[in-house]
Nucleic acid binder design. Sequence first.
DNA 1: GAAATCAATGCAATCGATTGAAATTAAATT
DNA 2: AATTTAATTTCAATCGATTGCATTGATTTC
Lengths: 337, 337
Amino acid sequence: MKRQITIKDIAIKLGLSTSTVSRALKDHPDISPKTRTAVKELAGLLGYRPNRIALNLRNNSTRTIGLIIPEIEHYFFSAIINGIEEIAYKNDYSVMVFQSDESYKREVINTQAVLTNRVDGVLVSFSKETNDFSHFQKLIDNEIPVVFFDRVIEDLPADQVVADDYHGAFLAVNHLIEKGCKRIAHFAAPQNLLIGKSRLSGYHDALLKHNIHFDHELVFLADTYETSKKAAHDILRKPNPPDGFFAVNDMSAIAIIKAAKELGKRIPEDIKVVGFENSKSAAICEPELTTVDQFGFELGREACLMLLKRLKDPTTTETFKPIKKVIKTKLVVRGST
Amino acid sequence: MKRQITIKDIAIKLGLSTSTVSRALKDHPDISPKTRTAVKELAGLLGYRPNRIALNLRNNSTRTIGLIIPEIEHYFFSAIINGIEEIAYKNDYSVMVFQSDESYKREVINTQAVLTNRVDGVLVSFSKETNDFSHFQKLIDNEIPVVFFDRVIEDLPADQVVADDYHGAFLAVNHLIEKGCKRIAHFAAPQNLLIGKSRLSGYHDALLKHNIHFDHELVFLADTYETSKKAAHDILRKPNPPDGFFAVNDMSAIAIIKAAKELGKRIPEDIKVVGFENSKSAAICEPELTTVDQFGFELGREACLMLLKRLKDPTTTETFKPIKKVIKTKLVVRGST
DNA sequence: GAAATCAATGCAATCGATTGAAATTAAATT
DNA sequence: AATTTAATTTCAATCGATTGCATTGATTTC
């Protein structure tokens, strides 16, 4: 195994001490110009690179951010990673990615991995299964700043970055109503997720505004392609089916469109559908999907910026005031409505 | 800043030396059962976690894998990350993700970042722009094993994992011919990428097999949604347009379908289209896309396994024999043909 | 010419954990 | 009781870089 060039190698070759070499490399005023240039020259020649691990140990910092995320494969999350990485990169941080695969158990292990890797801070969007948050509290107890994004929890001393879920949902449903829908179904995310609740309540309030009765029977727990397709099939076969659908994400909305078409319904003539996310797929499906743009890239950027701010100005647990940042959402109208 | 519990804290509290504590924690036979249990008990009580950074320094290893990838947002790459993460996780490795954004310059910086972070090994799929590979050679010079996947280079001492691009392309084009296509166009990736070359040659040989003239005029450089849509529009407006398309990836194929539909062509009656990737979008577009499954998840798994094998049994540069693993591809026939 | 000043460099401790070798203690043997 | 053997534990060096505090040698000042 070839050894890396160390400061010691340079010191020995030049007959100096490691301290002098160290100082020379960082332009310490004590060092004479002659030795300074000599050191720098040799360092360049040998291809010296400071050993980050040694610095990590000394500074008790790794310039690394941990990212705990349900599933990379979702467009929304990969867009977020993109935003995170951009900011991290600009600030000379690296990103370690951990997937929970929507599993609480796996997520707990992720938090442990993040601890052993001694990351400087953590960005989290937790799993659908997660109802107990003590593993995140443990991170905070270890003085590791945590920023939640998209799927957030309010009663933990941690910052939050979310899309304006309520408003986005309101816009979506309002749009359906204005387009003439009388019976609007909502395919919702689990209600332990704040996004699930917020979007439901946006749906509810938009109905309210137009004096449409809120019917529990029209709200379904369906936030994946498979569950949504099945649910849509069931619902559309029943008497008096909905003429409008507001789905909690694009894949769910696309599944509804697929199911409707399979049953011979025309979109948007018979049924109108709105999604939430504005993924690549929304622009691909037929007809193209009206959806709420969640600006994942921006969300990732903001979350990372927030974390970096905490890393720069650490606060004690006592004086910590969580900040909540809301990213505007926007309705993108396309052929499905 | 709250200090982490160290081995020293335990040693002092129990009136022992750090060496004894260290040995007790790892069940060294020299340590008496009494002290062993005492140490372990206190360690548990204080919530001691070994400082990974200190271990990193001592072992000159970080149990971290660097991943350099063009763009996370592509389904194919996120599927690969998924596979990589699964294997890494099982083997107690963490993954650091670096995106090149298809930029050579950024990729060079990524390799530097990977070096300063002292990862144990690197997985690479390089950018479209990359024609000079000395930055990867530098990694290898630093004794960091490199495994290339999908976009690989043959003349570097590094393992490779690729899909069976040639065969997949052959299958795709053969399928188009058997479905009656006489004039088949190919939307290709840049020819500096081996995948570009292999898929083109699969296309070429399938034509050859059926005694169809290979026409340079029918091969286009178009591997993104935007460029493909524009190219398809142009081609389909010309006299004697193709009746079949083989695209180098799904987004390109979907763009062709979109363009064709905009021009009033029916799919698959007037035009047949085959993609390459088998992304989520392929099952969503209308008609559903016939495509070659690239098994990104498997590919990621294999690449990571290969790297871990190199980490377990390091070879010297002299005796290094690159291994190339080929993942089988499979034609998935759907409505577009 | 002795004392004070200053520039340049080296020493040694530190970060946290590990480990070969030495030292201490206890037990067993003669 | 003296000596060997075995069982525990500690010492000190190591990984690579940094940094407060000497130390050295040269120059200036009185």
